[in-house]
């Protein structure tokens, strides 16, 4: 499975950062500016036609604080690949994949809601789980554990 790492490294040397297969899970880390070309290549030429999951990790305290994680699946070959990008704290912005995989639309809204990562060219980037009046992004590590924002009733 390391040949896919080699192919990506050869095709996109400027975007490739690192790769590993820990516990049998093939993972590549790429630069965020290369997300669209790399993902387009993986979908159209490597056959990863399903976006299984799209989520985010908050590495609070690190300079590249947010890590957006994409889980891809190849329905015909039954292969999986995990793609990651790291985003800086001051500018948590990455390109939207909603025009490539339709389901990315809601995943990206969830990541925006929970982590405050912005997705460029997203058709409808608004909160999906929390209500519009909610302030902040609750899954960020610096969101206060006891902070409550009820719409009715007391601060319980």
């Amino acid at each position: 499975m390391s040949d896919i790492f080699e192919r990506i490294r050869e095709k996109f040397p400027e975007y490739f950062r690192s790769s590993h297969s820990n516990f049998g899970d093939d993972t590549i880390l790429i630069k965020p500016e290369g997300l669209l070309p790399v993902m387009g290549y993986l979908k159209d030429e490597e056959g990863f036609n399903v976006l299984m999951d799209l989520t985010c990790v908050d590495y609070y305290g690190e300079e590249e604080r947010f890590e957006v994680v994409y889980h891809l699946y190849d329905l015909t070959e039954k292969k999986r690949l995990r793609v990651k990008v790291r985003l800086r704290e001051e500018e948590p912005v990455v390109e939207s994949l909603s025009h490539m995989w339709k389901n990315a639309n809601w995943y990206e809204r969830e990541v925006w809601d929970m982590f405050g990562v912005k997705f460029l060219n997203h058709p409808n980037l608004k909160r999906i789980l929390m209500y519009e009046e909610f302030e902040g992004h609750p899954l960020r590590k610096d969101y206060p554990l006891r902070k409550r924002q009820p719409r009715v009733g007391p601060l319980n």
């Binding site: 789980l129 929390m130 609750p138 969101y143 409550r148 924002q149 009820p150 009733g153 007391p154 319980n156």
Partner: peptide, 17 residues
């Protein structure tokens, strides 16, 4: 009481409202 969902999303018992 809210149960074990003592978090940002959950009402801690409906008797508060």
């Amino acid at each position: 009481t809210g149960g074990f969902y003592d978090n940002y999303a959950t009402v801690q018992g409906i008797d508060t409202i």
